[in-house]
Design a protein around this nucleic acid. Structure first.
Lengths: 250, 250
DNA sequence: CCACGCCATTTTGCATTCATTTTTTGTCTT
DNA sequence: AAGACAAAAAATGAATGCAAAATGGCGTGG
């Protein structure tokens, strides 16, 4: 018997980044869905590992019915996969899967930028500028965590400025999938990309100020594409030099 | 003892355009999910109407458990919404919701075009050209149904040429939501948009031949944006001149 | 010594059952 | 007669039970 899940119960995850595609906190099922999603996204279950229903049930103190409902939803979201009569497994993303995910993210952000140019206010732009300088500070201090967090805030601000709830939800969904890889693989962007990324961010701000939708769309896509390259490359050689974590079904 | 599914039940929908975000035809739950999704997408349940579990259960000849699992997934996909303790309703899309949907679709197609330029073969382009001329024929014959179908094939070909399964799945999901509106509202694009749309399609082909990713991305976005305008406008004044179908809670 | 097959245990999938909540209906009061 | 209240009826949400499938262990045979 292999228990992929530690004995310590599920930490009551606050709605930190709330990547939910829906927010039905009312019903037990909804609550379970939120907690389980965070649990998986945060990498508490290793790649490809089984998600034992029984164990999770006693861990969460519920019966199997609402848990299984939540599992079905997570499967539809692409976080786990359901093998017929063989239970749920955390979805193991191949390198190709990751490339695809990054490209879709790039497309969504590209879209967000385009739409943002149509409706963004000067105040919102000013807020993003502040974040930009804050990020620059992190960059100078070599504070990777702070840098990454602020970077994420900037991109989320652009998505918010797009004034499109559907886009925002979809974006959050994909962001969650990618975040899981980051958590579990413990990867971050390379130093060497920092300077380049900063320049790109300046171009983003510039296009945003001019409300140049098409241009911003292009820049954002390229920016994310470059991120993709760095991330994939990083994963391919392992988070700390170890050989690549090759997808292994079983 | 409940036997097989009654003949009068849900029509056995062929995998026509297969908009599934997953295809687990094996389990009963998966089968139910596919059928229910098609059932809803095809507009068999009016906007905002309740989705009575009990009735659907005997219609499908199953118990409530797998049905409820499918409902949860459909809710996550955005086709229905779950009111706590008050059952499932077919999601009523406001005009704003539709605008958002169209914009996201535009973004996805825009992305598809960009990616397609990186990998599309001459043969695929030739196939799209054939579809284009076929569509032109429908246009000349004022065959709206044929035109629309071929048009959809072209856009799907571009998505296929993007070589991104994740994108394709997401695209199919949103296409399903929009398709439902088309089915239930019975709307189609106006004649007057035809000529313009044909010209845009020629520009699309041109950019595709030149593998001009950014350019194609722009054109596709604008193309879909124009579509959006026509569709929304059409819905706003009703499919056949009737006043707008205003969202109605219950 | 290893490979193959058989049986016990565990796990999954679905049906059924139980407890609440909502909705409806009937009655009473004003 | 209209509205409000209350009880019955129905529907929902979750738990439990049961049959089928898979997993693992064990014995037998090569």
């Amino acid at each position: 018997m292999k228990s992929a899940i530690p004995e310590t119960g599920v930490p009551i995850t606050p709605p930190a980044t709330g990547n939910g595609s829906d927010r039905q906190e009312a019903s037990l099922h909804g609550e379970i869905l939120l907690r389980l999603r965070d649990y998986v996204v945060e990498g508490n279950i290793p790649d490809g590992a089984r998600v034992p229903e029984r164990q999770l049930c006693e861990m969460l103190g519920i019966s199997r019915t609402p848990l299984r409902e939540a599992l079905k939803v997570l499967a539809a979201e692409g976080l786990i996969e359901l093998l017929p009569n063989r239970g749920a497994r955390v979805r193991q993303l191949s390198q190709r899967d990751l490339e695809e995910l990054f490209d879709v993210m790039a497309g969504l952000e590209s879209l967000a930028g385009r739409l943002a140019c149509e409706a963004i206010t000067d105040e919102e732009i000013a807020a993003i500028e502040r974040l930009h300088y804050e990020m620059y500070g992190h960059y100078l201090h070599r504070d990777m965590h702070g840098y990454f967090q602020t970077n994420q805030q900037i991109h989320e601000s652009i998505v918010a400025a797009a004034r499109n709830a559907t886009l925002k939800t979809t974006y959050a969904n994909f962001a969650g999938r990618i975040r899981r890889v980051r958590y579990s693989a413990n990867f971050a962007r390379k130093r060497q990309r920092w300077a380049e990324a900063m320049r790109e961010h300046e171009a983003i701000l510039d296009a945003l100020r001019r409300r140049a939708g098409s241009e911003l769309s292009d820049i954002l896509f390229q920016h994310l594409r470059n991120k993709r390259g760095a991330a994939i490359e990083h994963l391919a050689e392992g988070p700390d030099g170890t050989p690549a974590t090759t997808p292994q079904g079983d």
